[in-house]
Write a protein that binds this DNA or RNA. Structure first.
Lengths: 188, 188
DNA sequence: GTCTATATTGTGATAGAC
DNA sequence: GTCTATCACAATATAGAC
């Protein structure tokens, strides 16, 4: 792995762990085993390096989600697979956590990949929900876009509950509750 | 308002805006119009002051939620009132956002009020859901604890989606989706 | 209780040698 | 491409005068 790559990977790790504000160039360099000079040779500065790291993390998250959502099966089954997929719950979402970073939100450039990824996920889920609705799997009255937002929010909020309590249990409970409400033939 | 109080209130504002890692003692002092000496006279340091601020914010959040949840009406109506209550959506949840702060999560003392508040909220909502279930408002098969976790997660995750997109629309969509799934007599 | 002075370490970056 | 030196400023305090 090139020094440039190690810098990006180290930044991804630290952004996930400590966020943008809590991650210093020095910490990145030490984690990557690179000197100041290397970092500033390959990147204009902290925001530039962070942008490369965020883009890579966002791409990876999208690919992972697509991998689960594009499996064969009913709409409900695919949504369940997405919700129950293995996760490092206590670490939280490497993309979603950036929304709590004031400097990321203040920067159009840094916020863009975060916004685009979550927006893509919502749209992808909305399509699946809509498919399920058309197939008679869900009630005809159901609003696919709204349900998709609920699904993504339950996951993102599940991380919050899990991290607050120091246990993945609350995340799992939130997912279980949502699935019980979505279950075909369920009355709540 | 005493200097001590101004320090706490300033810390609350800054913790909400920038988180623990992003908030410096100097910024707090300037916001409060107090000198270094005052701050270190009233508080042992940044963690001590942050603890006072977090406790106050947590207490306030609990009181606000209880105010909405203790109104008369059906279980569904109270849950809807909670979900639709006026919020400064783009600012996010002043308690929930702290779960993304590495230094808060790393400290038993600082995490405790966050955990207790979200845990109280889940339990309070679970009680209301259970009431609704017993009254025949919801399906008998419904798991009150799980649904409560879903409700809190939808709110916390709604903030994430809203901040990512720079608009409250996604928060509102998530809430709408959840309410449509919970609606008495709904089939989804 | 509040103020100013001082100290140590970290942050984020530039300059220029190798 | 990588390294070390250097820099101005911020973070987080302590000390002691007032």
């Amino acid at each position: 792995m090139s020094t440039q790559d190690r810098l990006i990977e180290s930044t991804r790790e630290l952004l996930w762990e400590r966020g943008y504000v809590g991650t210093s160039p020095k910490a990145i360099q030490q984690h990557a085993g690179a000197g100041q000079g290397s970092m500033y040779h390959h990147f204009k500065g902290k925001p530039d390096l962070a942008l490369a790291a965020i883009r890579r993390t966002a791409d990876e998250m999208r690919a992972t989600a697509e991998g689960v959502l594009s499996t064969p099966g009913s709409a409900y089954a695919r949504i369940e697979a997405y919700l129950r997929r293995e996760r490092d719950v206590l670490r939280g979402c490497p993309v979603g956590r950036l929304t709590m970073d004031p400097d990321v939100i203040a920067s159009e450039e840094l916020r863009a990949p975060v916004d685009e990824t979550l927006d893509w996920l919502r749209a992808r889920l909305a399509g699946i929900v809509e498919e399920g609705r058309e197939q008679g799997e869900f009630a005809p009255s159901l609003d696919a876009e709204a349900i998709a937002a609920t699904i993504v929010a339950t996951v993102q909020g599940g991380y919050v509950l899990a991290r607050a309590s120091g246990s993945p249990a609350a995340f799992d409970a939130g997912v279980r509750g949502l699935l019980s409400l979505l279950a075909p033939g369920s009355t709540g």
